[in-house]
Design a protein around this nucleic acid. Structure first.
Length: 340
DNA sequence: AGTAAGCGCCGCCATG
DNA sequence: CTCATGGCGGCGCTTA
C-alpha cells in the first residue's frame, strides 16, 4: 500500500466516504474546497489552498453509494500518513445504523481527532462522530429527521434542530445535504476570508440552479456577505430568533444601539439590502431548509420561520421564488423518501 | 374587490 | 466644509 504524496504547504482536506454515502454530501464540499484551491493558487501563492482527497471509511477503497453507484476512493483512512488539516465526515440516509461501518474506523477517528485542526460532519455523518465520542458535551445537528434519534442514542450530545450548521470548538456538524456546502463555504471563509468564499459561492451557485429557477443556492445571507461585525452579530441574533414573528426594524436597531433611521442607513450600506428585506430573506432561506430537510407541515414550518401561517409562507414563496412551497418541496424528494 | 391600518423606507433638514 | 447621526413626514407596499 503506498502512502499519498502531500506537498506540504497546502492544507490537507480529507473527505471520508461512508458506505451508502449520499454522493452530494461528498461532492458538494469537495467542489467547494477544490475550486477554492484553484482560486487561491492563482491569486495568492502557487502552493496555497487545499489538497482534497476522498478516503473510504472501510478497509476497501471501493464504496457503494446510496444511489447504487460504485466509487473508488483514492485511499482508505487507515492509509493516510500526512497530517490532516480538515476532516469531513460525510453521511447518507443509510448511515443511521452504523452496522455497515467497521469498528476500526471509530478507533481511527478517535486517534486522529486530537491531531486535526477541525472536523466536520455532513448530514448523518454526525452519527459517526457521536459514536466515536467526539460529540460528547458538544452542540451538534444532523439531518433533521434524525435529530431525535441522535438525541436518544447519544444522550451526552447536545442536539439542536438547527437545519444549517453548528460549530462547537473545532467540531462542526451540518444539517441536510445542501447545508454541507454551506458549511464548506464557512470553512473556506475562515481560512481565506470573505471575498474568496464569496467568489467560490458565486461560481458554484451558477451550477446549482434550483426549482423556481429564480433564486439559486442559499448563499444570499451567509456571514461573509456582511462587512461589519455588528451586522454579522445581528444576523446571528436574527437566526436564533427567527421563529419570533414580532421582530421589527425598531427592535433590530435597538439591538445594536442605533436609532432606527441611522440603523437602516448603515445596514443598507453593509448588506445592500434594507433590514426588513434581509429578515424576510432569512425567513425564506430558513423555510427552504425546512422544506428540503424535513417533513414538517407547512403550518409548522411557518411557525418555525416566524411567519403568520401557511398563507404567509405561500405568498412569500411565490414572491421570492415564483413557486409554491409544495411544489418547491416536491422538487426535493429523494429516492429514499419516495419509497416511504 | 375595495378600503383602512400598519410598517418600512427614504428624502429632507438639523445637529454635532 | 465633510461626514456621521437622528428626527420627521410622506409615500408605497402588504395584510386584514
Amino acid at each position: 500500500m503506498e502512502t499519498i504524496v502531500y506537498s506540504g504547504q497546502k492544507k490537507l482536506v480529507v473527505i471520508v466516504i461512508m458506505p451508502g454515502v449520499q454522493l452530494l454530501d461528498a461532492v458538494g464540499p469537495s467542489d467547494v474546497f477544490s475550486y477554492t484551491s484553484h482560486l487561491v493558487m492563482s491569486k495568492l501563492a502557487f502552493d496555497s489552498g487545499y489538497e482534497v482527497i476522498m478516503a473510504s471509511a472501510t478497509k476497501s477503497r471501493q464504496i457503494t453509494a446510496n444511489s447504487g453507484v460504485s466509487i473508488t476512493c483514492a485511499i482508505t483512512v487507515a492509509e493516510i500518513r500526512s497530517p490532516i488539516d480538515t476532516l469531513i465526515i460525510t453521511g447518507g440516509y443509510a448511515l443511521t445504523t452504523l452496522a455497515q461501518i467497521p469498528m476500526h474506523f471509530f478507533n481511527w477517528l478517535n486517534n486522529v481527532y486530537p491531531t486535526v485542526r477541525r472536523v466536520a460532519s455532513v448530514c448523518t455523518g454526525a452519527f459517526a462522530l457521536a459514536e466515536a465520542g467526539i460529540l460528547d458535551n458538544k452542540s451538534a445537528t444532523t439531518h433533521w429527521d434524525y435529530c431525535p434519534k441522535l438525541r436518544e442514542e447519544y444522550p451526552a450530545v447536545k442536539v439542536s434542530d438547527n437545519p444549517f450548521f453548528i460549530r462547537d470548538g473545532k467540531v462542526y456538524t451540518s444539517g441536510g445535504v445542501s447545508s454541507g456546502m454551506d458549511l464548506a463555504l464557512a470553512l473556506v471563509e475562515e481560512d481565506f476570508g470573505r471575498d474568496i468564499a464569496l467568489q467560490v459561492a458565486r461560481k458554484l451557485v451558477l451550477q446549482l440552479k434550483r426549482p423556481g429557477n429564480q433564486s439559486q443556492f442559499s448563499t444570499l445571507l451567509p456571514d461573509f456577505q456582511l462587512k461589519s461585525k455588528l451586522i454579522r452579530d445581528l444576523r446571528q441574533w436574527l437566526l436564533e430568533n427567527i421563529h419570533n414573528k414580532d421582530i421589527n426594524v425598531g427592535q433590530m436597531a435597538e439591538k445594536v444601539n442605533m436609532s432606527p433611521r441611522n440603523f437602516a442607513r448603515v445596514f443598507i450600506k453593509d448588506a445592500n439590502l434594507t433590514p426588513a428585506k434581509f429578515l424576510e430573506k432569512l425567513r425564506v432561506e430558513m423555510a427552504r431548509k425546512y422544506l428540503e430537510d424535513t417533513h414538517l407541515s407547512m403550518e409548522q414550518i411557518a411557525e418555525k420561520c416566524g411567519l403568520a401561517g401557511m398563507g404567509a409562507l405561500r405568498r412569500l414563496f411565490l414572491r421570492h421564488l415564483e413557486i409554491s412551497p409544495n411544489a418547491y418541496r416536491s422538487g426535493f424528494k429523494t429516492t429514499q423518501e419516495e419509497v416511504k
